[in-house]
Amino acid sequence: MTTLAQAQDTTTGIPSAKLGMWLFLASEVMFFTGLIGAYIVLRAGMSSWPHLGEELSIPAAAINTFLLLTSSMTMAMGVAAVHRADVKKLRLFLALTILLGSAFLGVKGWEYSVKFAHGHFPGTAIFWDCYFMLTGFHGLHVLGGVIANLWILRLTLGQDFSERRGHLVEISGLYWHFVDLVWIFLFPLLYLI
């Protein structure tokens, strides 16, 4: 039995590491549900709210959505590369995922700098509290995913990565796709509705 097979061996029928990640993601769903729920309740209780595109840049957010959707594709291709024991392609797809995630953070950083330059900070108004809370926590999650993928990319430089630690790519991939899923809901809620 290979080390990868051992890592995926379990009595429940689900690889332990994978089950652990799914349970973690379930707790993350509850975390973001609380934040999004607070946003909707606060917004519904306000008599006025900025109109569409008045305060936030829809093109910048659409570009960021495009970057995250594309990074999800490259991450999924990275997982496929592991299953094919193709470490060269895995490195390529991981590097692309890291690059796209970093670009997302770069665009978000630019958005933040514009808001700060206009005097919009957390605490300025309910709208900005919600915006910085939701995008800030999401951005931290993206940063965590980028760091995790960087660590895995470094591991791929070692011997027999696919056999020994290939399951890490699948686990990291689940987390990365979750971060994408959260943004799929945040983008319309914050920018389009």
Binding site: A26, V29, I36, I40, A44, I193
Partner: peptide
């Protein structure tokens, strides 16, 4: 079991967001 762990929280978040949004 994986479907239960994976899908149930997503079902809850969808339900919560829809109820809150439709309510408002």
């Amino acid at each position: 079991p994986l479907w239960v762990v994976a899908v149930f929280p997503f079902f809850l978040i969808t339900l919560a967001i829809l109820v809150l949004l439709l309510g408002s």
